[in-house]
Computed example of a mutant assay.
Amino acid sequence: MKKKLLSIVAVLFTAFLLVGCSSSSNSSKKMTTIKIGASAVPHAQILRHVAPELKKQGVNLKITVFQDYVMPNKALANGELDANYFQHIPFLEQWNRQNHGSLVNAGGVHIEPIAVFSKKVKKLQDLKKGATIIVSSNTPDYGRILTLFRDAGLITIKKGVKITQLTSVISRQTHGI
């Protein structure tokens, strides 16, 4: 039920955001085309789901599906797209820093769930001190990963430290828990 509710909220927000982009053309009954890049799942699926309703409101979505997380930002920066839909803010900020980019966040979107998986440890709180873990190599996800550990009481973060910028704390390991 929670996933269904999250999906509905994401679809409604996306529709609202995209319709807001086209409000000036709706009054003239012209069709506005928005070229948008998205990762295949779930972002392109969500966009395909809202496309018929947007078309009724004068917005034609031209969706380009990307199989990675670099090309949509490059295409947007080069003017090949009007928008893209796939990333969270820490990823966008890192991409801008690394590419001297100036892409901006047009509004909040859903964030994919993140979790901890183990064959040996049933609850994160039961993780033993000194255990070795494997984490994503995607450094913008480190803030989300550290939040899981903080919320489980395994680590503390000093006040004033921006958790989304803590990248040197995590090092990739070769042994799982």
Score class of each variant (00 low, 15 high):
Ile89Ser: 11
Ser118Ala: 12
Val65Tyr: 10
Gly58Thr: 04
Asn96Ser: 04
Phe66His: 02
Leu76Tyr: 13
Glu53Asp: 07
Thr64Asn: 04
Asn105His: 13
His100Ile: 06
Leu54Asp: 04
Gly108Arg: 12
Glu53Lys: 00
His88Met: 07
Asn96Met: 06
Ala115Val: 08
Ala115Glu: 09
Gly108Trp: 13
Val121His: 14
Glu53Ile: 08
Lys56Arg: 10
Asp68Gly: 03
Ala83Pro: 00
Lys122Gln: 14
Gln67Ala: 05
Asn84Met: 12
Ile63Trp: 04
Gln87Cys: 08
Ala75Ser: 11
Lys56Asp: 10
Glu112Gly: 11
Phe91Ile: 02
Phe86Ser: 07
Val65Pro: 05
Lys120Cys: 03
Asn105Ile: 03
Asn78Pro: 03
Val109Tyr: 06
Gly58Ile: 05
Gly107Leu: 08
Glu80Gly: 00
Gln98Phe: 10
Val104Ile: 15
Ile111Ala: 11
Ala106Met: 15
Leu61Trp: 00
Ile114Gly: 12
Glu93Ser: 13
Glu80His: 07
Lys55Ser: 04
Glu80Arg: 05
His88Phe: 15
Ile111Pro: 01
Asn84His: 14
Phe91Asp: 12
Gly58Cys: 02
Ile114Trp: 06
Ile111Lys: 14
Ile46Ala: 11
Lys119Ile: 05
Tyr85Ile: 01
Arg97Trp: 10
Ile111Val: 14
Ala115Gln: 10
Gly108Ile: 13
Gly107Met: 10
Val104His: 09
Pro52Val: 07
Glu93Val: 13
Asn84Phe: 15
Leu61Met: 02
Gln94Met: 13
Leu47Ser: 08
Gly58Val: 01
Trp95Gln: 02
His49Val: 11
Thr64Glu: 07
Pro72Cys: 06
Gln98Lys: 13
Ala77Met: 09
Tyr69Gly: 00
Arg97His: 07
Lys62Cys: 00
His110Met: 13
Leu103Thr: 05
Trp95Val: 01
Val104Asn: 12
Leu54Met: 04
Asp82Asn: 15
Tyr69His: 01
Arg97Cys: 04
Pro90Arg: 09
Val109Trp: 09
Thr64Leu: 06
Lys120Gly: 05
Gly108Pro: 10
Leu103Trp: 13
Asn73Ala: 12
Leu47Asp: 02
Leu81Cys: 09
Asn99Lys: 13
Lys119Tyr: 14
Asn96Val: 01
Gln87Trp: 06
Val70Asp: 15
Phe66Gly: 03
Asn84Ile: 02
Val65Gly: 00
Asn78His: 13
Phe86Ile: 00
Thr64His: 05
Leu92Ile: 07
Arg97Ser: 10
Gln87Pro: 00
Leu103Ile: 03
Ser118Ile: 11
Tyr69Ile: 03
Ile63His: 09
Ile63Leu: 07
Gln94Gly: 01
Tyr85Lys: 05
Gln87Tyr: 11
Ala106Leu: 14
Lys119Thr: 14
Lys55His: 03
Glu80Pro: 01
Ala115Tyr: 15
Asn105Trp: 10
Lys122Phe: 10
Lys55Val: 02
Gly107Pro: 08
Arg97Pro: 01
